[in-house]
Design a protein around this nucleic acid. Structure first.
Lengths: 157, 157
DNA sequence: TTGCTGGGTCTGTCAATAAGACCTAGCCTG
DNA sequence: CAGGCTAGGTCTTATTGACAGACCCAGCAA
């Protein structure tokens, strides 16, 4: 019983392409901070504990990939410096962050619970990213989901 | 204007802990295949192009972390071999995969579109993971979301 | 002119990845 | 019962990346 997936090429797989950009230990830790309003090199460094050089590399890559942009700022009595802000492409990673946080909270949190909660600014209720289908059904288990070839699918050679 | 996030410790951050497990270039590529019904070493290797040793390491780690389990199987005329199957902890990463796929499809797909679609097995409609809050509101933009300290939050020293 | 500060670079060490050859347990066939 | 086949791995070597810590540097203020 050959799995049908074996018939299809994966060389244009968007998951693999995404992981080439965001697939490392630190990127989401950086994004977590930026999403939380931390935009400056040294603040990130202190919070995350990332080695300077690695943080420099990550920020450079995130800027090169268009997830962050550099923005000059000038504080009273200091010279102009740069801070890092999310682009739309970066902001659109928020659902991924929410999903990772949900998983981490479930399996990796201390007994007291998660140190971070994400709430809807207006109503104060927690935010989640539940699976559902566009027909409006709630998807209770991943087993209800079937993968199938999309418009960009190519047969394997 | 100090960002309030700076007051809080991040040493028990569940995002960082999650990234220590799943934060690398290959893990989600492996999980993608397992979710698609590919459970055997060589099939994964051919599809993903991962170097053998790295695939061995990843599978070992995923088993050690309890996301996959080894299952012996026996095919007609062959000796017993092992295949890799998702545990509940691994299955629960599905929403993360869905979110990554959505982002990748939006920003990284070829012009023809994504090679993979995930559909609801019963109704055939595409599956997504939209953000919403537990009060039932749809969250249209990440800007509507505010982070706040959770039950496990600790002040920085 | 000296010092402070944020955002870096330089250097050296060690761990992870990549590529490719080699190994091994058991089943089958000659 | 020798030899080949196969899935699921090791072994070796070269290259890249992570890490730690020292150092640098522009410009504002005292």
């Amino acid at each position: 019983m050959e799995p049908p997936a074996l018939l299809w090429s994966v060389d244009n797989c968007t998951i693999a392409r995404a992981m080439a950009i965001i697939g490392d230990k630190w990127t989401f830790v950086v994004l977590r901070d930026v999403f939380q309003g931390i935009h400056r090199f040294d603040q990130m460094r202190v919070r995350t504990g990332i080695p300077r050089q690695v943080l420099t590399n990550r920020l450079d890559r995130l800027v090169a990939e268009g997830l962050l942009r550099r923005e000059p700022y000038r504080e009273e009595g200091s010279r102009t410096r740069t801070e890092y802000r999310l682009t739309d492409k970066g902001l659109d990673l928020y659902p991924v962050l929410v999903a990772i946080l949900a998983w981490g909270d479930r399996y990796l949190a201390d007994p007291e619970g998660s140190p971070i909660e994400l709430v809807h600014r207006d109503c104060g209720a927690p935010v989640h990213a539940p699976l559902n289908c566009t027909a409006g059904h709630e998807v209770k288990s991943p087993r209800e989901i079937a993968p199938r070839p999309g418009p960009g699918a190519r047969r394997r050679v």
